[in-house]
Simulated scan of single mutants.
Amino acid sequence: MDQEMSFPPRPLRGVRAVYARQAGCPSDFADVTVDFEPWEEGVAFESHAALAIRGDADPQEVAEYVTAAADGIREELGALAAESKVAVAVVLRAVGVHAVDSHPTAFRQAGRLAVRNALVLAYRPPPRPKRRRSAPQIR
């Protein structure tokens, strides 16, 4: 990114990141939905008051997952700050958990992935729809 750019350049809402890795049992699973809003320089993080929770988890587990996701987001944005100005408020809107495969490390990775997904949304044009080749016409 260019030195003059600031992240995020505009509000990026509903950025979803799913970290799912099947490498045996237990596996890794975390699902987060995050908003990135332009803000004061630095990183402000909060969990939405009406955090949506998909799946079953007790409140203590959810608190650990939220903390881990915030850590991953801050780590990834910290690496970005060396190249560009980071001035962002991050709001965690939803988490998806799996009874066996969710754990804090997976949520940390999902947080990092959410930042990467937001960067793609912010700085790369959306993919163009592929043209379908028309079938040869029979006369």
Rank of each mutant, 00 (worst) to 15 (best):
F107E: 03
A44C: 10
V88N: 05
I53K: 04
R108L: 14
A106R: 02
Y65Q: 01
T33G: 02
Y65F: 14
A94N: 07
A63R: 12
L92R: 05
P126D: 11
D58I: 00
Y65A: 00
E75C: 11
G111P: 06
V95N: 01
A87T: 02
H103W: 02
H48Y: 05
I53R: 08
R112V: 03
A106E: 01
A110P: 06
H48L: 12
G111F: 04
A118I: 03
F36K: 04
N117V: 08
V43N: 06
V120Q: 12
R124Q: 14
P59N: 05
A114S: 15
A52G: 01
T105F: 05
D31V: 00
R128E: 14
V34R: 10
G96D: 08
E75S: 14
L119F: 06
R112G: 15
H48I: 00
T33W: 00
R128K: 14
V88Y: 04
L119M: 13
F36W: 05
N117T: 09
A63W: 03
R124Y: 13
A118C: 06
R128A: 15
I53Y: 00
T67I: 06
I53Q: 06
E46L: 11
E61G: 00
E64A: 13
P38G: 09
L121M: 11
S84P: 00
V97H: 00
D35V: 08
P104E: 05
P38R: 09
L92N: 05
A122V: 06
A49R: 15
V32F: 02
V66L: 14
W39Y: 15
F45N: 04
D31N: 02
V120A: 14
A82P: 00
V43W: 08
G111W: 04
A82D: 09
P59F: 02
E83H: 07
E75L: 13
V32R: 03
G42M: 08
A79Q: 08
P125E: 14
Q109P: 01
R116T: 13
L113G: 02
R54C: 08
P104V: 05
V90C: 06
A82Y: 03
R112N: 08
G55W: 07
A82G: 05
A57G: 15
P125R: 15
D71V: 14
E75I: 14
G111V: 04
A110V: 10
A69G: 07
